[in-house]
Design a protein around this nucleic acid. Structure first.
Lengths: 210, 210
DNA sequence: GCAGGCAGTATACGACTGTCTACTTCCCTG
DNA sequence: CAGGGAAGTAGACAGTCGTATACTGCCTGC
């Protein structure tokens, strides 16, 4: 069942450990990995054909981790009224608990390897789709057309991922990041509700109840 | 006046050339640079003390480039009514014309070197502040408090930068990216105009003129 | 109980890296 | 015209890298 034998897992975890500090997945060396994992350099070849394949496997590994996190998230969100606030809090908490996976994702999303970039993009795309369908299903913002919800979901996923790095590294800013993310989401959806109105009409509405 | 002597400039431009393909600034080697620049490896030491210092100088170089671009932008925007649309088009056009600088910025913003990250962050912060003050000065969205405008400006600058990579790499998606960016900006500001309203009030407003 | 495959090790090779010292070439200035 | 400093070159150093081949131990199926 568990497809990861000892050495393989050790190497992947070594990679995550190294990346958390000051490295990037693409820049890791085979020997460096083995050293960190406490293994002989050649053991690497027993499990991976090349460093590219290794990178993909690491991505797959953290994708599994993330999926587990998302499952928990959906269970929790179902029992909540103010979905955006709780969801944001939960997601950042999750990132904080998995700094290595988060760092890898952020760093390689725009990193030098096209292969990893594509893999990560489709991963994010899947998460965004899941988020959008969840919102649609639960009719959280019924006044916005489905396509727009998908669009905003994609933006939100990306936005959260970028802020996640700061969230991990700068404890003092965590509250700020959290509330700014809530603002981000709420404003996106509220703004989208007014997509069909002209600039002047929106301004008129905004001033009415100030 | 021009502080860049021949060799120094050659090395920096070599770096930009290499990065555009599949490299990252942090991962460049001294000899690799010299080879690409057609110089002896040791010439590097005549101009830079270390690779870190080199990275900072490259950042400074592209910051100069970007500042020139922003100057042009402000001149142009002053003569325009529909500011967001034209501005977005201009900015992406600019990124397209400077792919190397753009790639460096995106890649190192979350890259492995903390020094470069900090440098880039303050650079972005400055751009965001400039953008926000421009918006306030010209009273483009007078119904939103200044602090919120700054917040949205920061988000927008980051969002555009991220999308810039796709914009450069995927010509087929350029129109989509451009319109999505406009949506992003408009929704943020429109949503912010309704910050003081409750969820149900917003929904009532949204439905009125559908 | 033994054969075969799998995980891990040892050693070695060539290529590449950053850095050092010593040398040459060129331009600018007095 | 002479001299000095800056730019660039040459060669060598120790270290690291990825890779290949050959080896040892262990577990499993027959």
């Amino acid at each position: 069942m568990n497809a990861l034998t000892g050495g393989k897992l050790k190497l992947i975890q070594a990679a995550l450990r190294l990346i958390t500090e000051t490295r990037s997945l693409t820049s890791l060396g085979l020997r460096e990995l083995a050293r960190e994992a406490g293994l002989n350099p050649n053991t690497f070849y027993r499990h991976f054909k090349s460093l590219d394949e290794f990178g993909l496997q690491v991505l797959g590994y953290i994708a599994e981790e993330m999926k587990a996190g998302v499952r928990d998230l959906r269970q929790m969100a179902d029992s909540s009224e103010q979905a955006s606030r709780d969801t944001v809090a939960f997601v950042y908490h999750y990132f904080l608990a998995n700094p290595a996976a988060t760092t890898v994702a952020v760093r390689e999303l725009h990193g030098p390897s096209p292969i990893l970039r594509r893999a990560l993009e489709s991963q994010l795309e899947a998460s965004a789709r899941e988020m959008a369908e969840d919102i649609i299903e639960r009719q959280l913002v019924s006044a916005v057309p489905p396509e727009t919800i998908h669009e905003i979901s994609r933006m939100t996923i990306r936005y959260i991922l970028f802020r996640a790095m700061d969230y991990i590294e700068k404890p003092a800013q965590r509250e700020t990041i959290q509330t700014e993310t809530e603002h981000f989401i709420n404003r996106q959806f509220r703004g989208a509700m007014l997509d069909h109105l002209s600039q002047t009409e929106v301004e008129r509405l905004a001033l009415r109840q100030s």
